[in-house]
């Protein structure tokens, strides 16, 4: 089995990436209160600054709101991609029906309950 240069470089980069992830994640799961400053700030000042009793909602929509904005845009891009793929499928079926001159059995999806 031949191993060329591209596979070797990707394996090296993957190895370095895994080592970096393990090193960084060792700092997050510490349990003394001095190194969890961000979560303690959210717990203490979450109610006064936003006014909502649900701290998870105040973190997702108020303190880190821009991440939620990016996530919604990713959902919108996925929906647009699915729609244009289905449009291409419908156009190719329509073109095939017009070329043959008759309607082939192109009911791809009858009612879902009738499997």
């Amino acid at each position: 089995m031949k191993i060329n240069q591209i596979q070797i470089t990707t394996l090296i980069f993957l190895f370095i990436f895994v080592i970096m992830v393990i090193t960084v994640s060792g700092k997050i799961y510490q349990t003394d209160f001095d190194s969890r400053a961000a979560s303690q700030y959210y717990l203490n000042n979450g109610l006064e600054e936003t006014g909502s009793a649900n701290i998870v909602n105040s973190i997702v929509w108020d303190f880190r709101g821009y991440d939620t904005l990016g996530e919604e845009s990713v959902l919108f891009i996925a929906a647009t991609g699915v729609y244009f793929l289905s449009l291409a499928l419908r156009k190719s079926i329509d073109r095939r029906d017009k070329k043959k001159g008759e309607k082939t059995k192109s009911k791809l999806l009858t009612k879902i309950t009738k499997i």
Partner: peptide, 25 residues
């Protein structure tokens, strides 16, 4: 709610429209 009161309603509506496009396709 502050901001979260408005943003919850609008965010729910956006997710509804996204899933509606996928089901429609």
């Amino acid at each position: 709610g502050g901001f979260t009161f408005f943003l919850n309603i609008i965010g729910g509506f956006m997710v509804l429209l996204g899933i509606l496009i996928i089901v429609y396709s």
